[in-house]
Simulated assay, not measured.
Amino acid sequence: MSKVAVVILNWNGSEMLRTFLPSVISYSAISGVDVYVADNASTDNSVSVLTKEFPSVKQIILDQNYGFADGYNKALAQVEAEYFVLLNSDVEVTEHWLEPMITYLDAHLEVAACQPKILSWRNKDSFEYAGACGGYIDRYGYPFCRGRIMDVVEKDNGQYDDILPVFWATGASLFIRSSDYREAGGLDGRFFAHMEEIDLCWRLRSRGRELVCIPQSVVYHVGGATLKKENPRKTFLNFRNNLLMLYKNLPQNELRYVMFVRGMLDYLASLSFLLKGEADNAAAVLQARKEYCALKEEFKLSRKNNLNKNSLQVIPEQIKNSILVLYYLRGKRSFSQLDKFLPNK
């Protein structure tokens, strides 16, 4: 069994492999580390590119496109390592990116997973939207990051270079103990893509396991390489999966109130899209709510199992306020302005 398995899930991304895989190979060439590419039934020339141009990379060939969530579940079932690194195919890593995370997890057995500092590949002095320096969540399920509040992305001036507990670590570069991944049941394949890593981290955190960001490790992420931010399919998956995640993980005394408020906020979001001329995104929000209602029965057992295994009723990294209120009504535009709302700060 290797120490670390870096696993990149690929779907029709041969050009991204050519662009980003060389840095992964070069900077992961340390003892005990294996690099894998798991191909999600690509129809381009990804497999031939891997075979001819990157012979040192181990291949896992999946028989169909299982999406991000179950694609990783299927791939990691074929890998034996102490630590898994789930790495997006559009990530450029840097020298010594693995060592700080290995060292920290080796020394902190209470920590299940961590992530590096995620900077934008296009604007390398700024944080990247989807991960930044670690993820948090508000009472109503809206995620935000240390370095990104709503659509405001901060420049990296070293202001978040301390190691800090987080609510969730991004799936763009998720470093996780294989034992924790498997004990928690992995990513929820029913999500297909989007929110699955936050759901997994919520399960881990509720069970008393910790998650941190290790800013001494740095990677650069393109982001939005599979589905662009304004894509209605992405809007649908984000809203539907967020609702399913809330249903699966919210404590019983929070469920009714939070889901009632979320219903109102979702209808406001749909109206906002419509007023901006984005009718497809407006419809996607409504379709997401409709499918959530249809799927809720299927998730009842998952909710019961999660609540039975929980040891933390209050998670310090979840703010009890609304990030929408803090952003739009109180003018909080940076993570550092949220100090008093985060008990662990």
Rank of each mutant, 00 (worst) to 15 (best):
S217F: 04
V219R: 00
V219E: 02
Y220H: 04
Y220P: 00
H221N: 06
V222D: 10
V222F: 13
G223C: 06
G224H: 05
G224F: 06
A225Y: 04
A225R: 05
T226E: 13
T226G: 11
L227S: 04
K228P: 01
K228G: 08
K229Y: 12
K229T: 10
N231H: 11
N231W: 02
P232Q: 03
P232A: 07
R233T: 12
R233M: 11
T235Q: 04
F236S: 01
F236P: 00
L237T: 02
L237E: 02
L237R: 06
L237Q: 02
L237S: 07
N238V: 13
N238P: 01
F239C: 10
R240K: 10
N241C: 01
N241M: 03
N241D: 00
L244Y: 03
L244E: 01
M245G: 08
M245E: 08
M245Q: 09
L246T: 02
Y247L: 04
Y247F: 11
K248I: 13
K248S: 09
N249R: 08
N249C: 15
P251Y: 09
N253R: 11
E254Q: 14
L255C: 06
L255R: 06
L255H: 05
L255Q: 07
L255P: 01
R256W: 10
Y257W: 08
Y257Q: 13
Y257L: 13
Y257R: 14
Y257F: 14
V258M: 08
V258S: 05
R262H: 07
R262F: 04
G263L: 06
G263Y: 06
L265T: 10
D266H: 12
Y267F: 14
L268I: 14
L268F: 15
A269N: 09
S270L: 02
L271N: 10
L271M: 13
S272K: 12
F273K: 03
L274Q: 14
L274A: 15
L274I: 09
L275F: 13
G277C: 07
A279Q: 14
A279D: 09
D280A: 15
D280N: 10
A282Y: 01
A282D: 04
A283E: 14
A284I: 00
A284T: 01
V285D: 00
V285E: 01
L286N: 03
L286D: 05
Q287N: 14
A288H: 00
R289H: 08
R289S: 08
K290M: 14
K290I: 09
E291H: 09
Y292S: 02
Y292A: 08
Y292V: 04
C293P: 03
C293G: 10
C293L: 15
A294Y: 06
A294D: 12
A294K: 11
A294L: 10
L295E: 05
K296N: 06
K296M: 10
K296D: 03
E297Q: 12
E297F: 09
E297V: 07
